[in-house]
Design a protein around this nucleic acid. Structure first.
Length: 814
DNA sequence: AGCACGCCGACT
DNA sequence: GTCGGCGTGCTC
C-alpha cells in the first residue's frame, strides 16, 4: 500500500473550500479520516479535520501539516457523506459542520498575544504614547496576554497595525499562543501486582506495604485513588514498590460517569396485540435498507415499550441504536427505562453534560462500547458506525430545531442519516408534525399506529368551557371557570391529583403605567417585561435582561405600574388561595433550572406530595404522571393567534399532549379546556384528540396558501444594531433577491420571495430584525436560488454591521 | 475568522 | 504628503 502523502482538510473556520496539505513522513502512520490536524492557514495555525487521503496532489504550493492532534479518529468514515450533505443543504462550511458535530472544546487555535518590555514600562511611566497605547500598556503585566482579551477589557477594538506599531517602538513583544482545548480524556493511575506469584514475597513486608499487598492480592487492579481510600497514604510507597518491580502502575483513560443513582433492572413486559403488531412490522424492516416509519401512537399507548423492543431486536442483529428525545428533561426518563432493560451499554449525549463528560461519552461511542445512544438533538451527531435503528421520540417537537449556529433540524437529519446509513428510522408521536404525516400520505413514510392506551385504559374525556359564556366571575377573574373550579374540588376530594396547564411563566405578562398607559418594555427588545414575583424583578423573556421591581414608568416617571396578564407564578398564588388545603407546586423553567429540581418535582408528584401541579409546556412533554386524573387547560388560545402559519399545528400538539397527561393509570382521566374559540377546528380536534381530523382541515389551508408541506422554505434573517442601516441592508438584500429571480427562467414559477419585512418581534437584544422568506415549489430550484444568492453575493453575508443568516426549513417565523 | 491589501478622507 | 479608517479577497 502506498503511503499517504497528502490529505484533504476541512478547516474549522467559516471557509467553504477544503484544502490540501502534505504529510511529513513521521506523521504518515497516524493519518486517518476523522482525526484532527494542526495546520498552517494563512499566517495562523488552526485546527482542521482530515476528510480524505490523497496519494498525489496537483496543487504546487502545498504546506505541511504541523501535527496530528488525535490518537483515535473522532468519527467514523461513514459520517463524512452526512457532513458533506449538511454542508451543502444548510449553506454551512464543512469544517464548521464537523466542529458543530464534535463535542465542544476540542479545537486548537492560536491567537496573537503581546507582552510588555522594559522600554514599554518606561513609556508607560513617562506617558509617551497615545491614550489607547498607554491604556493597553497598563493592562499588561509580565505574562503574554491575548490581544482579543485586552480589546474586550478596554471595550475598544485593537487593530494589528497598532500592535505592530507598538512592537516597532520596542514596547511589546508580539507572539502567538494556543488557547487550551477544554476537553481531554481523564487519566487515572491503576495499580496491579506485577506477577501473581508476588504473594510469597509479601510475607516479608510490613506495615503500609503489607496492607497494600493485601488489597492488591484480592483484586486484579485498583485505581490509586481507590487504593488510597482503603489504605491511607498508600500512594507514597507505590513508586518504591514499582521500582522494586513488585507492582505495575498503568495510566488508563477513565470515563467520567454522568449517570446518577443505580437502577434496578426490569424485564420486558408482554406487549399488547397492537404493540406486538407494530414491533413485528418494523422489526421485519431491520437490516433491509432505508425506511422511515411514523409511529402515530395516542398518548399513553406505550411507545417507549415499542422502542425498547425494537432496540433489542436491532441489538440482536448486532446493530447500534440511536434514540433522540426532544428535551434534556425527558432523557433521564428514557435513559432510566433503557438502563433498566439493557444495563450499562448506553451512552447519553446532551448539553447539560460537562465538556469532559460529553467528550468521554463521545469516545465510548467511537470505541463501540455502547450500542445504544440516547440524547437530545445534538445526539444526532453521535459517532455511531453500525446504525441499525434511529428512534426520534415526539418527532413533532420544535426543540429538534437548533436555533443559532448551524440551524439544523435533528429530526430531519435523523431521517437523512437513516438514508445514508441504510437503516430504519422510527418517528414516534401522538401528534405527528404535518410534514411527517403528509409524508405518510404520499407514501414516503410507512405508517404504523397505536390507537389504544395500554391495558385498555380509556383516553381522557375532554370538555370545553367557553370563557365567553362563563359569567360567574366570583372574584376568580375569569381565570378559573366554575366547571373547572368544581372539577378541581371533586378531584381533590377523591384524593387524586390535578394538573393545570398555562403556557406562560412569571407572575404577570405585561405591565402598564396607570397614569400614561405606556407599557413597560425591555429597553433592548420590542417586548413587554414579565414580572417575576419571587425574584422581585422584571425579566425580559427574550434577552434575559432584568430590572428592579421598583422601576418607574420610563415615559412619565409615575410609580404606579399595573401588573396585567397571568403567568404560572400568579396562577400558583391564586390556586393556593382558592384551595388553601391543597399542596400546590409549580413546574416551569424557573422552578426547574437547578440540576435535580425537575426530578424532585416529578418524585413529589409520584409520591403524592403534590395535589395540584401548575406548569408550562414542560408538563406537556412526555412525563408519565400516574395519578393525575384531572387536567385543566387554563387558556387554550394563547398560541393560536401567533403570526406564524404553524400556530394551529403547535396549538393542537400542545393541547393534545397536555390532555394526554390525564388518566395514565387505573383511574380514568378528565380534561377541562377553557377557551374563547370553542368552535375553532383546532380546539375541537384537540378536544376529540383526533389528529386526523385536525390534519385533514389544516392540510387544506396549507395547500391553499402554498405553505409547507406544499413548498419548501428558506428564511433570511437580517439583523443589526443600527435601525436605519439594518432597514437599508434588508431592502438591498431584497432587491438582490428580486434581480436574481428575474435573472433566470428557472425561478419564474418555482420560487416566491416574501419580504423583506420587519420581523414580528422587531427588536431583540438591541438588534433590529428583518426577514425575507423564500418559498420554493421545487426543492432543487429553491436551493439553486439560495446557492446563487449566497455564493454570488459574498459581501451580503460578511457585513460588519448587519448580519444575514440563512435558515433552511425555518420552524419559527417570528 | 483573521489577516493583508488597497482605496479614500483628515491630520502632522 | 501619510496615517488610519474600512471594504474586498484569500487562506492549501
Amino acid at each position: 500500500m502506498p503511503l499517504i502523502k497528502y490529505i484533504e482538510v476541512a478547516i474549522s473556520l467559516p471557509v467553504h473550500d477544503t484544502f490540501t496539505y502534505s504529510v511529513p513522513e513521521i506523521f504518515q502512520p497516524y493519518i486517518e479520516v476523522g482525526k484532527r490536524v494542526l495546520v498552517p492557514f494563512g499566517k495562523r495555525q488552526v485546527t482542521g479535520y482530515i476528510t480524505k487521503l490523497i496519494e498525489d496532489c496537483s496543487h504546487n504550493l502545498v504546506k505541511s501539516i504541523f501535527d496530528v492532534l488525535d490518537e483515535k479518529t473522532l468519527f467514523p468514515l461513514s459520517m463524512l457523506p452526512f457532513f458533506k450533505w449538511i454542508s451543502d443543504y444548510y449553506f454551512y462550511p464543512l469544517g464548521e459542520v464537523i466542529k458543530c458535530a464534535l463535542p465542544s472544546g476540542l479545537n486548537l487555535y492560536d491567537s496573537a498575544t503581546i507582552k510588555i518590555t522594559c522600554s514599554g514600562r518606561k513609556a508607560l511611566s513617562e506617558r509617551s504614547g497615545t491614550p489607547l497605547e498607554i491604556s493597553i500598556l497598563s493592562e499588561l503585566d509580565n505574562e503574554f496576554c491575548g490581544i482579543k482579551h485586552i480589546s474586550k477589557k478596554l471595550k475598544n477594538n485593537i487593530s494589528m497595525s497598532l500592535v505592530r506599531n507598538m512592537e516597532n517602538c520596542g514596547w511589546v513583544i508580539l507572539s502567538r499562543e494556543f488557547k487550551c482545548p477544554l476537553a481531554k480524556p481523564k487519566v487515572e493511575k491503576y495499580v496491579s501486582l506485577s506477577n501473581t506469584d508476588m504473594r510469597c514475597f509479601s510475607d516479608g513486608l510490613k506495615g503500609l506495604k503489607k496492607r497494600v499487598f493485601e488489597v492488591l492480592d484480592k483484586i486484579d487492579e485498583i485505581s490509586v485513588k481507590n487504593l488510597n481510600k482503603q489504605v491511607s497514604g498508600a500512594s507514597r510507597i507505590l513508586e518504591a514498590l514499582e521500582k522494586e518491580k513488585y507492582i505495575v502502575i498503568e495510566k488508563k483513560n477513565i470515563y467520567r460517569d454522568p449517570f446518577g443513582e443505580a437502577i434496578v433492572s426490569d424485564f420486558p413486559p408482554v406487549l399488547n396485540e397492537e404493540q406486538n403488531d407494530v414491533c413485528i412490522n418494523i422489526a421485519g424492516l431491520l437490516g433491509k435498507g432505508y425506511r422511515t416509519c411514523l409511529l402515530a401512537g395516542v398518548t399513553g399507548s406505550g411507545k417507549t415499550e415499542v422502542y425498547m423492543h425494537l432496540a433489542k431486536k436491532a441489538l440482536d442483529h448486532c446493530y447500534q441504536v440511536l434514540v433522540l428525545v426532544p428535551e434534556i428533561a425527558l432523557i433521564s426518563q428514557m435513559e432510566q427505562c433503557f438502563r433498566a432493560r439493557f444495563g450499562d451499554c448506553i451512552a447519553v449525549l446532551h448539553s447539560r453534560l460537562s465538556a469532559g463528560e460529553r467528550f468521554d461519552q463521545w469516545m465510548r461511542i467511537v470505541e463501540k462500547k455502547t450500542p445504544i445512544v440516547i440524547g437530545a438533538r445534538s445526539a444526532v451527531w453521535a459517532p455511531v458506525e453500525k446504525l441499525g435503528l434511529i428512534i426520534v421520540d415526539e418527532e413533532h417537537d420544535s426543540s429538534y430545531k437548533q436555533d443559532g449556529g448551524l440551524h439544523y433540524n435533528a429530526r430531519d437529519l435523523a431521517v437523512l442519516r437513516g438514508k445514508l446509513n441504510n437503516c430504519v428510522v422510527l418517528l414516534g408521536s401522538a401528534t405527528p408534525s404535518l410534514q411527517s404525516y403528509y409524508n405518510v400520505e404520499t407514501k414516503k413514510y410507512l405508517k404504523t399506529a397505536l390507537t389504544k392506551r395500554v391495558e385498555k385504559r380509556p383516553l381522557p374525556e375532554v370538555s370545553i368551557v367557553d370563557f365567553r359564556e362563563d359569567n360567574d366571575v366570583r372574584g376568580y377573574k375569569h381565570i378559573i371557570t366554575l366547571p373547572l373550579y368544581n372539577a378541581i374540588n371533586e378531584t381533590l376530594k377523591r384524593g387524586e391529583q390535578v394538573l393545570l396547564f398555562l403556557n406562560r411563566r412569571g407572575f404577570s405578562t405585561s405591565s402598564i403605567c396607570v397614569s400614561c398607559g405606556e407599557p413597560l418594555k425591555c429597553t433592548s427588545c420590542d417586548i413587554s417585561f414579565t414580572f417575576h414575583k419571587k425574584a422581585n424583578l422584571y425579566v425580559c423573556h427574550y434577552c434575559g435582561k432584568t430590572i428592579s421591581s421598583a422601576i418607574n414608568c420610563l415615559k412619565c416617571g409615575s410609580s404606579k405600574i399595573k401588573l396585567l396578564g397571568i403567568g404560572t407564578e400568579k396562577m400558583e398564588i391564586l390556586i393556593k388561595s382558592l384551595f388553601p388545603i391543597a399542596k400546590v407546586a409549580r413546574m416551569d423553567s424557573d422552578t426547574t433550572k437547578k440540576k435535580g429540581a425537575l426530578v424532585k418535582i416529578l418524585k413529589d408528584v409520584k409520591h403524592g406530595n403534590i395535589d395540584i401541579l401548575i406548569g408550562t409546556q414542560i408538563v406537556a412533554k412526555g412525563h408519565d404522571f400516574a395519578n393525575i386524573t384531572l387536567v385543566g387547560i387554563i387558556c387554550a388560545d394563547l398560541s393560536l393567534n401567533f403570526p406564524d402559519f404553524r400556530a394551529g399545528e403547535r396549538t393542537f400538539q400542545i393541547l393534545a399532549q397536555v390532555a394526554g397527561r390525564a388518566g395514565r393509570s387505573l383511574l380514568p382521566g378528565k380534561v377541562i379546556l377553557q377557551t374563547y374559540n370553542p368552535e375553532h377546528f383546532t380546539i375541537i380536534a384537540a378536544k376529540e384528540q383526533n389528529f386526523e381530523s385536525f390534519y385533514n382541515k389544516e392540510i387544506c389551508f396549507r395547500k391553499a396558501l402554498r405553505y409547507p408541506p406544499f413548498c419548501r422554505m428558506i428564511q433570511l434573517k437580517i439583523y443589526g444594531k443600527d435601525k436605519v442601516k439594518t432597514r437599508h441592508f434588508a431592502q438591498a438584500t431584497g432587491d438582490i433577491c428580486a434581480i436574481l429571480q428575474k435573472s433566470s427562467k428557472l425561478f419564474d414559477n418555482s420560487v416566491e420571495i416574501l419580504g423583506p419585512v420587519k420581523a414580528s418581534i422587531q427588536k431583540i437584544a438591541k438588534n433590529y430584525r428583518w426577514q425575507i422568506l423564500i418559498k420554493g415549489f421545487s426543492g432543487k430550484s429553491l436551493h439553486e436560488f439560495v446557492h446563487r444568492l449566497y455564493f454570488g453575493n459574498r459581501s451580503l453575508f460578511n457585513n460588519k454591521n448587519v448580519k444575514v443568516i440563512v435558515d433552511v426549513d425555518p420552524v419559527f417565523l417570528m
